[in-house]
């Protein structure tokens, strides 16, 4: 299935958001995730299954003023 992540298209197997983050070596404690414009609480990452066509925004902190 295809999902849209940070403006890019990715082809992935069916999995939870937590598994997807782990597959990218992203520490779930260090990011915030929007799924189809709704912010997901961290506790929901493990139980949220990604679906075809989902739009994800995964953000973190970078240097800024």
């Amino acid at each position: 299935m295809q999902i849209h992540v940070n403006g890019e298209t990715a082809t992935i197997d069916e999995m939870s958001l937590l598994h997807y983050l782990e597959s990218l070596a992203i520490d779930p404690r260090r990011v915030a995730v929007e799924l189809n414009l709704d912010i997901l609480p961290k506790a929901a990452y493990g139980t949220t299954l990604l679906r075809d066509g989902d739009r994800l925004e995964i953000v973190h902190f970078v240097g800024g003023g």
């Binding site: 940070n6 890019e8 990218l24 953000v59 973190h60 902190f61 970078v62 240097g63 800024g64 003023g65």
Partner: peptide, 13 residues
């Protein structure tokens, strides 16, 4: 200290 919020680089980890 201030920080900015930006997309994680998915393609280059």
């Amino acid at each position: 200290i201030t920080v900015a919020v930006r997309r994680v680089n998915i393609s280059d980890r």
